[in-house]
Design a protein around this nucleic acid. Structure first.
Lengths: 234, 234
DNA sequence: TTGGACGAATTGTGATCACATTTCTCGAAG
DNA sequence: CTTCGAGAAATGTGATCACAATTCGTCCAA
């Protein structure tokens, strides 16, 4: 099973809302997709996931439906559930959406990014750099997500934020396969520039840093053959 | 029941994919939300919807999960499912998202909008105007949706298009209550300007027409008290 | 008339079952 | 060695059931 369920409950049950099994399943799948733990193209089975999560197929069904509605999973005509495979058209559109939305939300967040948040961002970026040195792709992706969403979350954007989350869910599995092919050494980002822009309250600079960070990732893709599908033949 | 199930199957089953009961439930709910047939704040019950659709609660559960994942429905902490109520913050963000995404996708679609599509758009706009004269809010909203998405669909935007669809799903129920309060006579749009811009291959003009069309709707809201919640007290 | 409490009805959740369809497996024929 | 097909295993879908929690209606007391 590609979902390594290490029984670490990263959901906080004390947030008021009673967490259901389904919610845990959704959170688990989200995490796996965000860090690219699930290979695109591989079929996910209800009963298999249920066994991994230690439940009946029922909560998994709803979880998969929810993720599919955000286009993080794809339900084929025969009913099989897979992680969507990337196509050039989809990749272009995904990048366009990110470049449109993320700098905008970052700019919205800027007035609310206090010094504590900047400190947190610096810490995340440091941890991220260590992951790059160690070649730890999975945690790198986790910290990269944390970095961006620590910024975006500060914006009061109850509509745009979930939209961006959906984009990252669609992006994660594909990026993982890319990182796996080009390694982590070549990875560059604009996080330091973003932090600096935040520190000096420079909206245009922050927009540009986020935009370039996205485009950096896109340029990385140019080095691999997009025509080839993600799932490597056994 | 607020969902008037008139047994007209608007889904086309001959598209290859075998349509399940769940898919019909999703389509039915989508339609009801887009045309504002379901009042925000009113609780939807699984068994109630199931009875309306003539099925067991099972397909409805998955359908509701899917719509909730697109933020077209909201699942409260106690599990009750409601159409989300509008807040000023949510409205602002919704508008910002629409203004960001829709002109862009329209511009992307422009090169692919042939003469037949322009003719179709004109037909839709005429039907829409007739609905305005008759005060037929529900069909007006249907045609308005058709108009915009006839344009957007032409763009090869497999990622952005569902994002915009999600925005409209969130927008529909609220707009319906607004229309119900201000009437349809005062409604203005920029559809004629959009058609003209398409006809003369004017990208900037099309962007502006779409943008103004969205802002027209927003200005309409200014005339009603946004502080008051949508659900009228019984 | 108003306020609260108790019981009944309803709700969402999770599990299990039945079934049609699909997928996989494996062996025989070419 | 490849190709095809029959049987077996597995899969998604929908229905039903049990149960805890919530909601609603009603009645009684102040």
């Amino acid at each position: 099973m590609s979902l390594d369920y290490d029984s670490t409950p990263d959901t906080s049950p004390e947030t008021g809302a009673r967490s259901t099994v389904r919610d845990k399943a959704i959170a688990e799948l989200r995490q796996a997709l965000l860090t690219g733990r699930i290979v695109p193209g591989r079929a996910l089975t209800l009963r298999g996931l249920a066994a991994t999560l230690g439940t009946s197929p029922m909560p998994v069904r709803e979880a998969i439906r929810a993720l599919a509605a955000e286009h993080a999973l794809e339900i084929q005509a025969n009913g099989r559930v897979i992680v969507p495979t990337m196509t050039p058209s989809r990749f272009d559109d995904l990048m366009r959406a990110r470049v449109l939305l993320e700098p905008e939300v970052a700019a919205l967040a800027l007035p609310r990014l206090d010094r504590a948040t900047v400190k947190a961002l610096t810490g995340i970026d440091d941890a991220l750099d260590r992951c790059l040195e160690n070649g730890d792709v999975e945690n790198y992706m986790q910290f990269n997500h944390d970095f961006h969403f620590t910024v975006y979350r500060a914006a009061d954007a109850p509509v745009l934020l979930p939209l961006i989350e959906s984009l990252w869910l669609q992006f994660g599995p594909f990026m993982r396969t890319v990182y796996g092919r080009v390694g982590t050494i070549t990875l560059v980002d604009q996080h330091k520039e973003a932090i600096a822009a935040i520190a000096r309250r420079d909206e245009a600079g922050l927009r540009e840093a986020i935009r370039n960070d996205i485009l950096d990732g896109m340029r990385l893709i140019g080095s691999v053959d997009l025509g080839r599908e993600a799932g490597a033949p056994g």
